[in-house]
Structures are given as structure tokens and as C-alpha cells.
Design a protein around this nucleic acid. Structure first.
Ligand code: SF4
Ligand code: SF4
Lengths: 144, 144
DNA sequence: AAGATATAAGACTCTTTAATCTTAAATTAT
DNA sequence: ATAATTTAAGATTAAAGAGTCTTATATCTT
């Protein structure tokens, strides 16, 4: 998997929060509900979303009527932001073959191409926001 | 990691075998030597290379003067062949987000782009052979 | 103030991948 | 034949990722 499972869950959850958010009232969305809809363990989801709240991508609120909410508009939360927090940027920085002593000066034939593809992937995640993914007529069926 | 560690080791080992092979005598290369040069556990390497011999990418020979050798010319062993055996083709077939109910008819915005990138990556591994990687003035430093 | 509801934090377990260790089988050299 | 060498096969251990469970803390409602 290019992205870890946790990371995919984080994106799915964020997407669900996006599509659920009532712009007027801005009620917090309880993690119980998100976990149920995503068909994942509540406590596991909790841990993942904590990373997002700590990174100020979401904000949370405890107690009755508590839950999570995006800290900024969905149109300014890029997928790469979530990936960076959950998985780190390794996928866009590391080498495919991991030959250790190969420098930019004496690269293997794959080097240029891999770097380019890696970069394009990165750009892809830098280009799309939660709003982009949540938009559209497509039904958001996020169950496993 | 896009490729598993085992898969990277397999490629490195194959590369070493390639560059070591004496075209005239075609002596088998002992796994001990490969393991030492690659700085990894002999028995671990054994298991990995067994997959390659079972897939007829390499051939092996037991006993003194035994070892492994490429079963065909390095110029006709494509990286994808090795990847397919060790990791399978999942990396080039699975979705990034893994939303389960999204069809080709109602894809998410990432769909097209991801599919394209994934395909390009695959083509990259389909294009390069062991000979391509072993060639060139580049010193093959494969130690960890 | 008390009880209910909800996230936070951390310990714990399960699964997969990575790595090691042991024993068996094949082959060569003496 | 026997001993040495080398891969094959499989059991075992270690580490990392994924997932569960328990306890603490904050907040609301009554
Ligand atoms: S030259 Fe580049 S792509 Fe090739 S092994 Fe080195 S870092 Fe990786
Ligand atoms: S539409 Fe395609 S890219 Fe998007 S989640 Fe579905 S399979 Fe993945």
C-alpha cells in the first residue's frame, strides 16, 4: 500500500466529517458515528483522529455534544496535509531501490524517472482538497 | 515503502549476480558471497532467492561450487518480473484511497490521475532490465 | 453536586513482515 | 565411502503495523 491503512482511514474520516458538517450550526461530529459509518473500531479511529487534532487540522470537543470538526474550510485542507501528519513524507522522498551509495552524480537508470513519478504523485496530493473529494454527485459510501 | 524490503533485496541480489557473472565460465555465485556483499543475513537471502529460482528467474545448484545464476540473459530479466514474484502486482492494481464502492462510472477525483501514475510506474518497471541497471560506469555499491 | 456523554491517553493484543536459527538434502573433492 | 560445501525447507524469534480495551479527563444536563 502506498499509504498506510491509518492514513487512508484518516482521509476517509475527514471526508465524512466534511460531508456531514452543517455549515450553519457547525455541530461537532461524534467519533462514535464516524466509526460506525466507516465500520472501524471506535478507539482505533480515536487515535488516528487525535493526530489530526494535534496537528490542528481538526478541532475536538469533549463531553456531550462533543466530537470533531475541521479546523479550517474543507477547501483549504489538502490531502498532503493529512498524509504528512499520519505517514510522514517518506513516500515522496525515499528511493525505490534504496541503493545507499548512489549519488545524484552517479545515479542508477531509474533515478530520474522515479524522482519524476514520485514528484507527480506528491503534486497530486498537493492539488486536491477534502472539498474536491467530497464534492460531486458521487455517493460517499465509506464502509469497508 | 513502495516495494517491500524483501523485494528490494531480491533486485539488489539479482543485480549483484548479474555484474558478477562470468559469461564464459558461468560459475554459480554462492549465496554466502552475495549475503556478505549485501550485508544481510545469509538465510534470509536464501529464502528470498528461492522465490526467484522457483519462478525460473534464477537457477541454483547445490553442493561445493554451487550457488545461483540468472536463468536467462540479464537483458531479458525485467524488474517487473522480480517484483511480480516477490511482492505481487498489488501495488499497480490497488486503489490509493481504497474507497470500496466507487466504480469506474462514479469515480472520485483522484481516480483517473492515480490510475495513470500507477500505470506509469508499472511501465517503468516493465522497461528496465537487470542489464540496464548493471550497465554504466556507476560503481555498484550494494552494501547496506 | 451527580450522572451521563464524549474525547484523551496509554496499555495491551493480534497480524504481518522481517530476520534468525536448525535440520535436511544434494553435490563435489578427497 | 567420507568429509566438506552449499542450497532447501521449515521452525522460531523480533519488530512494526493494525486493532482492541481500560482508565482518565473534560463537559453538558439535570
Ligand atoms: S540512483 Fe536514485 S533511484 Fe537509483 S538507487 Fe540511487 S537513489 Fe534510488
Ligand atoms: S474512485 Fe478510484 S481512486 Fe477514487 S477511491 Fe475509488 S478506486 Fe480509488
Amino acid at each position: 500500500m502506498f499509504l498506510s491503512k491509518s492514513c487512508v482511514y484518516a482521509i476517509r474520516a475527514a471526508l465524512l466529517v466534511t460531508s456531514r458538517t452543517n455549515k450553519r450550526t457547525r455541530d461537532f461530529i461524534p467519533l462514535q458515528e464516524i466509526a460506525a459509518e466507516l465500520n472501524l473500531s471506535f478507539h482505533f479511529l480515536t487515535k488516528i483522529l487525535q493526530q489530526l487534532t494535534q496537528a490542528k487540522i481538526m478541532e475536538s470537543f469533549r463531553g456531550p455534544r462533543g466530537g470533531v470538526l475541521l479546523a479550517k474550510p474543507a477547501s483549504s485542507v489538502y490531502l498532503i496535509d493529512i498524509i504528512k501528519v499520519v505517514d510522514g513524507m517518506g513516500a515522496f522522498e525515499d528511493c525505490v531501490l534504496g541503493l545507499p551509495d548512489c549519488s545524484e552524480k552517479a545515479p542508477c537508470p531509474l533515478h530520474r524517472e522515479w524522482k519524476k513519478r514520485r514528484q507527480e504523485l506528491r503534486k497530486m496530493f498537493e492539488r486536491y482538497t477534502l472539498a474536491d473529494l467530497a464534492r460531486g454527485k458521487r455517493v460517499l459510501n465509506l464502509k469497508n
